[in-house]
């Protein structure tokens, strides 16, 4: 009899993660124009899909996402199906989060996608660990949220306010036509806030890679290269059997 890797919690993999990521995907495209012309649901543009792939590559590199834990030869067909559903939902959710935080048009739209590409690429090159990547994503998405839903929303708020006065003073001489922005009703900002929050929480729930779980059992100072991890894993399996 061989002991099989227990795998991630079945409920979390079958219900929690796909439903959270799908909720993010659904709400990420929600917009309510300030004119009150009704709800809009925007699908992700191609660029957001490309960045979602890049983001998932960064997650794999950092150990935040372990595709082999979700889909693999050692899992049954149903387990692989639920794992694939998690990956698909994560992909669509990531694309929608990226799109949700993007200014809708103009120079800022272009700058957003340019800087997002550079940031993710840089993160990929830096190869951070799981926690550092989560911190990094918190900062990236948090900054983008503040830029779009606090700074830009204040700038184009018809009723004005302190924030608008500060920003117009700082941006004196800049033609606002360059900073094209479609104002939305406040509910859009609230929805976007929860989209980002739920997305980040769901990322922390992603199942860890096997090596990450085995690492604490290893002797301090033991180098965790792939071969050694494989040996430890084999030894453990033998012990269980």
């Amino acid at each position: 009899m061989t002991a099989r890797w227990p795998g991630p919690d079945a409920v979390r993999e079958s219900f929690t993660l796909p439903l959270l990521f799908l909720s993010v995907a659904a709400a990420g495209g929600f917009r309510m124009p300030s004119g009150g012309t009704g709800m809009q649901f925007l699908p992700p543009p191609v660029m957001a899909l490309v960045l979602a792939v890049l983001l998932m590559a960064v997650m794999v590199r950092a150990g935040l996402l372990a595709p082999a834990v979700l889909v693999g030869e050692d899992r049954t067909g149903l387990e692989n199906a639920t794992g694939a559903a998690v990956l698909a939902a994560l992909f669509v959710g990531s694309a929608q989060v990226i799109q949700c935080l993007a200014p809708e048009s103009g120079l800022l739209h272009l700058l957003y996608y340019t800087f997002m590409t550079i940031l993710l690429w840089n993160t990929l090159a830096a190869a951070p660990d799981r926690m550092r990547l989560l911190h990094s994503l918190f900062v990236i998405f948090g900054s983008a949220f503040l830029l779009k839903y606090v700074a830009l929303a204040s700038l184009y708020d018809p009723e004005g306010g302190v924030m608008r006065r500060v920003l117009t003073t700082l941006l004196e001489g800049v033609a606002l036509g360059t900073l094209q922005h479609a104002p939305f009703a406040p509910v859009t900002g609230y929805v976007a806030f929860f989209v980002v929050l739920v997305y980040l929480v769901a990322l922390t729930l992603l199942p860890r890679a096997r090596t990450a779980l085995l690492a604490p059992r290893m002797e301090p100072g033991l180098v965790a290269d792939a071969e050694q991890v494989r040996l430890v894993e084999t030894r453990e399996r033998t012990d269980i059997t």
Binding site: E13, S14, F15, L19, L22, A25, T82, A85
Partner: peptide
Amino acid sequence: IRGAGLLLTALYAAFITWVYAHQP
């Protein structure tokens, strides 16, 4: 559990697709 989760996920995904296709 996995079967139920997969079914629920598929239904939810179909609902979201419907919303985006019909744009209420």
